[in-house]
Design a binder for these strands. Structure first.
Lengths: 345, 345
DNA sequence: GAATGTAATGTAAGCGCTTACATTGGTCTG
DNA sequence: CAGACCAATGTAAGCGCTTACATTACATTC
């Protein structure tokens, strides 16, 4: 026998359950959504029918009727590396605690893809959205406001924005690291960064380096900049470019740990000793930073806490449509062996 | 002015567009779904109305009415590391080419969570599913068959199963690697593996090692086994355990690259030289394998190709409900420096 | 110009659920 | 024990779409 009920030639619906249990569809619905509104005896009868028929509610029908989905969406730039993994995991864990499902989409760092993903998630009925960074077409924020969909921005912090935020100060964090680098005697500084265009995290980090140099009396021209896609191989390629310059740098400050690890790998390949001949820094403090050899000096970002706080904030915004708050997550410079005092060889 | 149409106090619907364009809802729907069924003049009128109102179709309503979503779901054991990232990316790229959206969920290697995620995805109307590995409650396969939802299993290959598959031979791949290890003189072999329980990839790999040892005339007792969760730190902890054994191993064969990298990091910490004093192998050949130091000897899995093929297969299964085929993806042993000839110190 | 065929459009019935409102039945009060 | 009240349940109207089927418009043919 293929089905419990031989009469059934389709996937069981609410109505089937109702008939089976001898109650109305409303009662079945209530059993599932607010069990306390149904007297114990009826409830157990209904749940029994649910079990017997193997009934599972149709999510789309529910969303259509109820106008909410208990789902929130997140759009991250990439799933290819671990940059967003830990934070997102914490975000998801907290959502799950609250009975909310997370839908993740990735934009490949493309604004137009991000926009498409936002529309997709919204048309799927996401009750709220987590976005990375501020910078995007204002129309998107308007669209979201019109649809009444709460948004939390993360991985960045802009004191002047009024968008709800749980993030960190990319500018300040990278500036601190750059100050450290400069204080260790480095003058020929290079940076490898993601394309800053449309990426506020990357451009803020870059500005942080420039500000530190400026305050230390260094000219901006002393900073070599390579923009590239994120990736280990890209980091290596960028290093090649830098080392072939007339005055190669004594330190390479990378926009993230992935690039930095790529730089270290390529340095090894070229026979450049890190940090004796070349210092390298990263950003994020993801897992590979610790196990890189030499271990990577980087900016530690408390991703888990950020994800957790973002989830709490967004959940709080779901019911009440009061706009949320802005929380600044602190970062710290994590000194490891890939950065050393500059020494003329 | 907040809205294009001041009369509009809600999100525009199909009916609004129809009214605005002076046509019926059916025509609007056709414009959006099969434009060639509508004459050019009408179509442009409708699309104009769509633009003016900023209309976006309600996905849930569409799914409910049309009984398909152009969405397929994938449930992977974890997003925490890059093991599944590349394959999944290729999978997604191919789906996108075909106008299909991918929904990803993760099970944290927990069968019950996987089951829950499967039900979630199904109730959301996924037209098809990508699952990792075969081993799961047969009821799940029955459930999926009853719902008429095509499934492709990946990351594994079972010649005896009739489930559609695009995967590789975990047993054979690991056996080849083990043969190589043995041929290099190693006799004191240890393995660090994921919990094999409910994880056919892990248990097949383990069996592969055992088979190679058996064929080489080694006793199974010569294999020390540590089961642990996946993770860099877990790999390190497992190594600690192994090195504190009365007869520590000369080689540690890890169930995946992540564990292996953890082992190498811990070895470094303990002052054990790799590969001079201890050889290490991985599985998967993800990015960190190359940049690990020493670079990791591992099993190369063509993840991109696997993802691509899986997508093609699943898409082919969507329309026709003919069950699919099984494709075996070849793997290769990738020799790098972390494995060397065994030498008595 | 009537008859015919076909392409374009309209009509309206659901898809499976939630929920406002109506109804019922039982308990409590005076 | 009638009346009032409240908790439990039922009724039925949508939610925003798709699509089978009915209708209309228009070009062709004789």
């Amino acid at each position: 026998m293929d089905h419990e009920d031989p009469k059934m030639d389709h996937i069981p619906t609410l109505a089937d359950v109702a008939r089976h249990a001898g109650v109305s569809t409303a009662t079945v619905s209530r059993c599932l959504n607010s069990p306390d509104k149904v007297v114990e005896k009826t409830r157990s009868k209904v749940l029994e029918a649910v079990r017997e028929l193997g009934y599972a509610p149709n999510f789309n029908a529910r969303a259509l009727a109820a106008k909410r989905t208990n789902t929130i969406g997140a759009i991250i730039p990439t799933m290819e590396n671990a940059i967003f993994a830990r934070g997102l995991q914490a975000f998801q864990d907290e959502l799950r605690q609250n009975g909310v499902t997370l839908l993740v989409a990735s934009s490949s760092y493309q604004p137009d893809q991000e926009e498409e993903q936002i529309r997709t998630l919204v048309s799927r009925g996401a009750d709220g959205l987590l976005l990375i960074g501020y910078r995007r077409d204002p129309k998107i924020y308007e669209f979201l406001k019109r649809q009444g969909i709460p948004v939390v921005v993360s991985w960045a912090f802009d004191p002047d924005s009024d968008v709800s935020t749980v993030g960190f100060d990319n500018y300040g964090a990278m500036k601190s690291l750059a100050e450290k680098v400069i204080s260790m005697g480095h003058r020929r500084i290079a940076t490898i960064t993601a394309t800053t265009d449309g990426n506020d995290r990357a451009s803020e980090r870059l500005k942080g380096i420039q500000a530190a140099m400026d305050e230390a009396g260094l000219s901006k021209d002393d900073l070599s900049i390579v923009q590239t896609a994120y990736g280990i191989d890209e980091g290596g390629a960028a290093l090649n470019h830098l080392m072939d310059l007339p005055t190669p740098p004594s330190v390479v400050m990378c926009g993230n740990d992935v690039l930095a690890v790529g730089v270290i790998a390529m340095a090894k390949e070229r026979g450049i000793s890190v940090p004796a001949e070349l210092s390298v820094t990263g950003f994020d403090d993801i897992e590979i930073a610790k196990i890189s050899s030499p271990p990577l000096t980087t900016v530690h970002v408390p991703h888990r806490r950020m994800g957790l706080e973002a989830a709490k904030l967004l959940i709080g915004m779901l019911g009440s449509n009061k706009s949320g708050t802005r929380t600044l997550i602190g970062t710290t410079v994590k000194m490891r062996e890939s950065l050393s005092e500059f020494s003329e060889l």
